[in-house]
């Protein structure tokens, strides 16, 4: 037993170093391979070349990704916020609450491509919107909703109940209590959750594959047109056999840098997030 515990101790140190190594490697290597590729032209130009992306830039893809994720956010944020408010502050019936929480939790596990399938049939065809940012945005919104709702709910639940009781005892209704007490306390966390949801939506390819993401489009100016997206652009470069691999690394590096910068921002905002453990 004593030797086993020594082995396990060694094993835990090694696993940790290995995992940290992998994380650092992924980021550093991608950036390293993209040196020389990322310049003003790369970021702000449109893609060109036989295989799209071999020359030119990725600007439409960057802007497209931003359009996709913000559409998703706008569609998902209000329901998520309201659900969190209703479930935490209003709904008393435990059975209904458990049921709703269960549905939200279980839907979180549904593969993102399924939401793509849904939006394809309903928004692209049945409602006639066709392949556009809106249709893709719906799929993405469905994907990020449970995640966002859960995070907002958690931050509401962390508010000291005594504060709420004190407010109610003064005769102040739930709406005012929420706006004046809860919201200011949770504001940073909510922003942090919003940022993380945006990142989540930005990295997703499957839901936008046949609902609004395309291989080539100009910088979007309308919700009702399709658009390019960063990860999709990367995928298509590879799938169509682009020979300028460094450019592909460039796209990947841009994605990773966006992830890194905004994750750090989200983490700094929510200094409380990891306090539980």
């Amino acid at each position: 037993m004593k030797t086993l515990s020594k082995i396990i101790k060694f094993f835990s140190y090694t696993s940790f170093i290995l995992l940290m190594g992998i994380i650092i490697f992924i980021f550093l290597y991608t950036v390293y391979r993209s040196i020389g590729i990322i310049n003003f032209e790369f970021i702000f130009d449109s893609p060109r070349g036989m295989v799209l992306g071999e020359e030119g830039g990725i600007f439409p893809a960057i802007i497209g990704s931003i359009w996709f994720s913000f559409t998703a956010l706008i569609l998902a944020f209000v329901p998520a916020l309201c659900s969190a408010i209703y479930l935490v502050f209003y709904l008393k019936n435990n059975r209904v609450k458990t049921f709703i929480n269960n549905v939200f939790e279980n839907v979180a596990a549904i593969p993102s491509i399924i939401f793509g399938l849904f939006s394809y049939a309903v928004f692209v065809y049945m409602l006639g919107f066709g392949r556009c940012i809106l249709s893709a945005g719906v799929a993405l919104a469905l994907m990020i909703f449970p995640f966002l709702e859960r995070k907002i709910e958690k931050s509401f639940l962390e508010v000291d109940k005594n504060l709420l009781i004190a407010s109610y005892n003064l005769g102040i209704d739930i709406r005012r209590t929420f706006i004046k007490i809860v919201l200011p306390l949770c504001f940073k966390e909510i922003i942090s959750s919003v940022i993380l949801s945006l990142l989540f939506a930005m990295g997703a390819t499957a839901p936008i594959l046949f609902t609004g993401g395309v291989a080539f489009a100009t910088v979007p100016n309308s919700l009702l047109k399709p658009a390019m997206a960063l990860p999709l652009h990367l995928y298509l470069m590879i799938a169509q056999g682009a020979s300028q691999i460094n450019r592909a690394y460039g796209v990947a590096a841009v994605s990773l840098m966006i992830l890194f910068i905004f994750s750090t921002l989200a983490y700094c905002l929510s200094h409380k997030t990891y306090k539980k453990v």
């Binding site: 990142l199 930005m202 997703a204 390819t205 990860p231 995928y235 990947a252």
Partner: peptide, 15 residues
């Protein structure tokens, strides 16, 4: 560690 969960699936496939 959570950065890993944020990396787009396509980037993983690519690398």
């Amino acid at each position: 560690i959570d950065l890993l969960s944020g990396i787009p699936s396509v980037v993983y496939g690519f690398i």
